[in-house]
Amino acid sequence: MTRISLLTASLLIVSAQCLAEVSSSRQTELMYFLKHDCGSCHGMTLKGGLGPALLPERLAGKPRALLVTTIMEGRQGTAMPPWKSMLSYDEASWITDQLLTGTITQTEVASESTPGALRK
């Protein structure tokens, strides 16, 4: 029984990966959502805040399925809520891919400052 549910689970994950198609207009919305709404805890540049940094180097080595599940189901004992009422699994998968490849951090916010810099 366990084996069958494991098999089902892995099939589900595989199919989620295959089916992860998100329309380009929805992609724009999700990118905005990631930056501004996820960003209220993880930082707009995803360098972290109340929630941890979500930069590629920080996420490297973590199983993709774990990341997708964290987005959808949240994480107990932390401030991370489940987002499944607002996102589909495909959308969470797509967001995960953007995080892993670092696409989001290449957008316009430039960190122009250096420590102790004085600007006039």
Binding site: G43, M44, T45, K47, G48, G49, L50, S111, S113, T114, P115, G116, A117, L118, R119, K120
Partner: peptide, 27 residues
């Protein structure tokens, strides 16, 4: 700022008069 920046701005002259990046992440 979120990036640890503390800026002092003069709102009569619209300019930054002092600024320091005091930590990695502030609230």
């Amino acid at each position: 700022g979120r990036d640890g920046g503390l800026s002092k701005v003069d709102i009569l002259n619209n300019k930054v008069v002092n600024r320091t990046l005091q930590s990695g992440n502030s609230i």
